[in-house]
Structure formats: structure tokens, C-alpha cells
Design a protein around this nucleic acid. Structure first.
Length: 418
DNA sequence: TGACGTCAAGATCCG
DNA sequence: CGGATCTTGACGTCA
């Protein structure tokens, strides 16, 4: 079983995807952006290997306007070697990658131009995986599309347009239930007619159920039979509801207890799990450590080095409690560790606690900072203490110092990002 | 015609 | 001038 995250990282250096707007899409500009993005992708994969993250969805933004005539660069040729190098790295490390055109790639549209653009977009996504020389277990996931007041016709159109696709695309394509239009029953029915593997998305099923009484596990089991040997291991999407937002909105982080009960419910299915969550790699590591057979406290210590200042920001007492929790080097209190962190991060802001954490972080710079930086942080801290400015003003200045002085400990800290 | 979702780029404002 | 903050872009469907 592999667990992964989608498209981008939080608190990982040199993994940013750059882009541009149409009017700036000159060959020169595109070349520099693509070069950056391929290097970022490789850095992301290297980070994933270091952190035991075996699954990644590659951002569709890898090549700006990749499926549009706006982009006239022959990027497939220019960056052939880079793609091959990335593919080799993926295979050598037994990673699995995927791509996912967004809601705006609509294969079953009533508008032929929209369909043509969707086909072009699928080609573009397929080109990337083909250039990396990835086998057909590395998938492209697609939504069914719109309903157009006539779902039966719309489904027929999907099947017809799917059937007309190149074989190289068809063997990568997989479909998922969405949160508004096509529920899992309908997607499975489409699969019956087309043999397309089905990805079950638990939150979409919650938002757009076929039958509320049918359990996740039952759907996942039914989906498993749509996956053939050459498709690789069955995949699902997993996310949790953000209770402060509308139904179907992804939670900021994966809550460990809720994940664990889901996992225990479906673990015999042994699927790969793509997490869809705001804090990306952070939740992936959390879930991986939770289920890891390695059970070595060094992994929790490493996580602690990333979370510690966020905890200190909320509560000095809880900071000490967690340090105590990690004292026994033969133990692996993974559940208690993450539950405690989730609880602490949920606490209300406390100005004295936050100031304490800010001063700790400032400690990394106070000897090398310039005079004007010393003055600025002093002013920011005073203003924050008086309640004149919000906390993130101070944190964002400390983050610019982190980047400027390139402090490797703070760069990997979650303090500036959660 | 705006909302939807998503992210970074671009534009603008501020000291 | 640099940095912070607000707005736009890019996509298609649906109310």
C-alpha cells in the first residue's frame, strides 16, 4: 500500500511550480519556467523518497499551457533528457505517479471544441508520463463531466469519446465519482461498459452519494474488480470534510483518529491512497508514520523538529509534555503524538505563548541579523504584544529571514505554514 | 453573469 | 524601492 499527496508540497525547499499568464508565454519564458518545474518535480520526488512517500500526483501545471496552442515550444524534445531522468528516478525508487486534469477538462461536453480541447489535454498529460517512460500503472484520472439535463446522453457521449481516444491514453485513463454530478454507482456502470478502472473518492461519495447506507468498504471492494493486472494496485482518493466549510471541502489536515478508523475499515482492500488535503505532504507523512511497520522513534523525533515551534506557539506546557512523550527511545507513541499535536494546534492563540515561540525562532538570527532587522523584529514583537498587528505579520518576517539566511532547520519547519 | 476551485502571477498599495 | 496585500487568470458548467 502506498500513500501520497497531490501536486505540491508545504515547507519543502525548491519544489515550487512556476507559471505565467497567456500574454507572457514567450518561448524564452516558457523554457525557463519548464526547466524550473522539472527540477522542482525531481526535488519533490527526492524529498518523497527521503520521507517514504511512494505516491505522488504530478501537477498539471508542470508545462504551462501544455495542451494549448499558446505554448509553441517543442518542450517534448527540448526536455527529453530531463523527463527520462525523472522517470528513471521514479522507477529506481519504486514510486508511483499519476496526473489529474481538473474539472475543466470535459470529455463529454456538448460542445465539440470543448471535447477537442479535452482530448488535447489528455494527450498532454499522457505525453508527460510517456516521456518519462512510465508503464500503464501510472495513471491519468478524469471526471466524467457535465450532465446537460440528460445524463443518459451525457454518459453515452463520454463512452463514445472515450472509445475514440488513442490506445496510449486509454490504457492510462481511470475515472472517479465526483461531488456533484456522477455518483459512484454511475461511474461503476460506465466502467462496466468501458472496462475503465474506477477510483473511489470517499468525500465525493459523502457529498454525492448513491446510497448513504452503503459503506466505503463495499464500494472499494466493487471498484477493485475494475482494476486489471496492468493497471497496478487499486487506488482510492481519501479526504476529510472541513467542518467550517461547505460539504465536500477538503480539511486543512488529515485527522489521525478519523483516518485510522477508515483505514481499519478498509485495510484488507490494500489500496493505494491518494490524500486530498490542504497540508499535502505533512498529512502524508503523518499517515505513513501511523501505519509504518518500522516503528522507530527517530521518525517521530524528525516530525517533532518540524512541529515543535507550532506547538510552542500555542502552549509551553504541551511542548514539554510532548518532549516527555518522546523520551523513551524504545517506544513508538505515534497515535498519542499526532493526536496531541492536533489538539494543541487547535487551541486559541495565546499572545504570551506565541511571543515565546517567536523569540525562540528569532534566536536563530539574532547574532547574524543586520541592525535594521533587529530593529524591525523588535518593533513587530512589541506591536504584536500590544495587539496592534496579527501574529502572521511577525511570522512572515521571520520566514523571510529564514530564506535569506537559508537556515536548514527552520526551512523544514512547519511553523511558517500551518 | 457570477459562483464554483485552485494556485501563483500580476497589479497595486504602502511606508 | 522592497515588501505586503489585493486582484486576476485559466478552465467549463450551471443557476
Amino acid at each position: 500500500m502506498k500513500i501520497g499527496y497531490a501536486c505540491l508540497t508545504v515547507a519543502v525547499a525548491d519544489t515550487d511550480m512556476k507559471s505565467c499568464i497567456a500574454k507572457n508565454a514567450t518561448n524564452e519564458n516558457l523554457k525557463s519556467i519548464i526547466s524550473n518545474n522539472l527540477q522542482s518535480l525531481l526535488n519533490m520526488l527526492i524529498y518523497n523518497v527521503k520521507n517514504d512517500i511512494k505516491l505522488l500526483r504530478i501537477s498539471s501545471d508542470l508545462i504551462p499551457f501544455g495542451s494549448s496552442s499558446i505554448n509553441k515550444l517543442e518542450w517534448q524534445h527540448i526536455f527529453k533528457n530531463e523527463f527520462e531522468q525523472i522517470g528513471e528516478y521514479i522507477r529506481n525508487n519504486e514510486l508511483r505517479v499519476s496526473m489529474h486534469p481538473g474539472q475543466y477538462t470535459v470529455l463529454n461536453s456538448v460542445n465539440e471544441q470543448v471535447v477537442q480541447r479535452a482530448v488535447d489535454d489528455l494527450k498532454y498529460h499522457c505525453d508527460i508520463l510517456d516521456l518519462m517512460q512510465m508503464d500503464s500503472s501510472h495513471k491519468i484520472i478524469l471526471h466524467i463531466g457535465g450532465a446537460y439535463n440528460n445524463k443518459l446522453d451525457a454518459i453515452d457521449r463520454f463512452i463514445k469519446n472515450y472509445t475514440a481516444l488513442d490506445t496510449r491514453i486509454k490504457k492510462r485513463l481511470i475515472i472517479e465519482n465526483d461531488d456533484k454530478i456522477y455518483n459512484i454507482r454511475e461511474v461503476l456502470d460506465i466502467s462496466k461498459k468501458t472496462s475503465i478502472p474506477v477510483v473511489y473518492d470517499n468525500l465525493h461519495n459523502y457529498a454525492n452519494p448513491y446510497d448513504k447506507n452503503i459503506l466505503d468498504k463495499e464500494w472499494i471492494t466493487e471498484c477493485s474488480s475494475t482494476w486489471k493486472k496492468e493497471d497496478g494496485n487499486q487506488k482510492i482518493h481519501y479526504s476529510q470534510q472541513d467542518n467550517n466549510k461547505k460539504t465536500g471541502s477538503h480539511s486543512p489536515t488529515i485527522h489521525i483518529n478519523e483516518f485510522l478508523s477508515f483505514y481499519n475499515h478498509i485495510k484488507e482492500c490494500d489500496t493505494d491512497i491518494m490524500l486530498e488535503v490542504k497540508d499535502k505532504n505533512i498529512s502524508a507523512i503523518k499517515c505513513i508514520n501511523l501505519l509504518s511497520k518500522k516503528k522507530n522513534i527517530k521518525y517521530l523525533e524528525q516530525e517533532w523538529s518540524r512541529y515543535n515551534y507550532s506547538v510552542l506557539e500555542k502552549s509551553h506546557k504541551d511542548y514539554l509534555d510532548i518532549r516527555q512523550m518522546l523520551k523513551d527511545k524504545s517506544a513508538y507513541p505515534v497515535k498519542e503524538f499526532y493526536c496531541k499535536i492536533e489538539d494543541v494546534l487547535d487551541l486559541d492563540e495565546s499572545i504570551p505563548s506565541a511571543v515565546n515561540a517567536l523569540q525562540h525562532v528569532w534566536g536563530y538570527f539574532k547574532n547574524k541579523a543586520e541592525e535594521k532587522e533587529k530593529k524591525k523584529i523588535q518593533k513587530l514583537m512589541e506591536d504584536y504584544t500590544k495587539g496592534l498587528i496579527p501574529l502572521n505579520k511577525v511570522k512572515s518576517f521571520l520566514y523571510t529571514l529564514t530564506l535569506k539566511y537559508n537556515d536548514s532547520y527552520l526551512i523544514q519547519s512547519y511553523f511558517f505554514h500551518i
